[in-house]
Simulated scan of single mutants.
Amino acid sequence: MRSKITYFLLAAVLVVYFFLAGTRGWILIRDGRPVTVAFGIAVLVLPLIGIWFLWRTTQFAVRAGQLARELEAEGGLPEDELRRTPAGRIDRDSADEVFARYQAETEAAPQDWRSWFRLAVAYHDARDTPRARRAMQRAIALHRGTAVRR
């Protein structure tokens, strides 16, 4: 719950920033001089990119949450069997062991979104965020029926 509040708070701050930057860009464009028009257009592009990025990130989070709820209802969420350090961090060797199991599961069933979801969690536990995100994107695409067949 705390992470959702933080996410929405940061998203709101970004939206305010995008609005302020957009208005400044518009003011520069309305000035009419070629240099200020060019700067104004450049300033308007940044909020547009930011809005697109925020939208895509929000879609990803919502869809991953939907998959998690569906998998939980099926009883298929991975159990937390990882060892932890005294500080509470996940033990790297433990994460690697669990990862190997979920990787084998995904290799055995490459078209099953559930195995890709569990692999994404294993990547995350192993602190490999880029691969975790790609695996979750694959799970989402398979669940939606839009994954490219390999």
Results as ranks from 00 to 15, higher is better:
Ala122Leu: 05
Ala126Phe: 03
Leu82Gln: 06
Leu67Pro: 08
Thr146Ile: 05
Arg84Glu: 06
Thr106Lys: 14
Arg2Val: 03
Glu74Trp: 07
Arg89Gly: 06
Met136Arg: 06
Leu82Val: 00
Ser3Arg: 15
Leu46Ala: 12
Thr23Val: 11
Arg63Met: 08
Ala122Trp: 05
Arg24Thr: 08
Gln66Leu: 03
Arg89Cys: 01
Ala38Asn: 09
Leu10Gln: 06
Arg33Gly: 14
Thr57Asp: 14
Pro78Met: 05
Gly32Arg: 09
Phe60Asp: 10
Ala104Leu: 01
Gly50Met: 07
Gly75Val: 01
Gly40Trp: 02
Gly75Leu: 05
Trp116Lys: 11
Ser3Pro: 03
Ala120Val: 03
Val43Asn: 12
Ala109Lys: 13
Gly88Trp: 05
Arg133Cys: 01
Pro130Gly: 04
Gln103Thr: 01
Ala141Lys: 12
Leu28Phe: 08
Gly76Lys: 12
Arg114Asp: 05
Leu10Tyr: 09
Ile140Leu: 09
Ala120Lys: 09
Gly88His: 09
Glu105Thr: 02
Pro86Cys: 09
Ala12Pro: 06
Thr129Met: 12
Arg144Trp: 03
Ala87Cys: 00
Leu9Pro: 07
Val43Arg: 15
Gln59Glu: 10
Gln66Val: 03
Arg33Lys: 12
Arg33Glu: 14
Val62Glu: 12
Ala64Leu: 07
Gln59Trp: 04
Glu70Ile: 03
Arg84Ser: 08
Ile140Met: 11
Ala100Lys: 13
Val62Cys: 05
Ala100Cys: 02
Tyr123His: 15
Arg24Leu: 10
Ala38Tyr: 00
Ile51Leu: 15
His143Val: 00
Ala12His: 06
Asp125Phe: 00
Ala135Gly: 04
Ala120Trp: 03
Ala135Met: 02
Phe53Ile: 01
Pro34Cys: 01
Leu67Gln: 03
Thr6Ser: 13
Val13Phe: 14
Tyr7His: 10
Val121Glu: 14
Leu119Trp: 07
Ala135Val: 00
Ala64Gly: 04
Ala108Gln: 15
Ala38Gln: 07
Ala135Thr: 02
Leu82Asp: 02
Tyr7Asp: 07
Asp31Pro: 00
Thr85Ser: 14
Ala141Thr: 02
Gly88Asp: 10
Asp128Thr: 01
Thr23Lys: 15
Lys4Ile: 08
Gln103Tyr: 10
Ala87Lys: 12
Leu14Ser: 15
Thr6His: 11
Asp31Val: 00
Ala147Cys: 02
Ala12Thr: 13
Arg131Met: 10
Val13Ser: 15
Val16Ala: 15
Asp91Glu: 15
Trp26Lys: 12
Leu119Tyr: 05
Glu107Met: 09
Thr58Phe: 08
Gly76Asn: 11
Arg63Asn: 10
Arg118Lys: 15
Leu28Ser: 13
Ile5Met: 07
Ile140Cys: 10
Asp112Ala: 14
Met1Thr: 08
Ala139Asp: 01
Tyr17Leu: 14
Glu105Ile: 00
Pro78Leu: 05
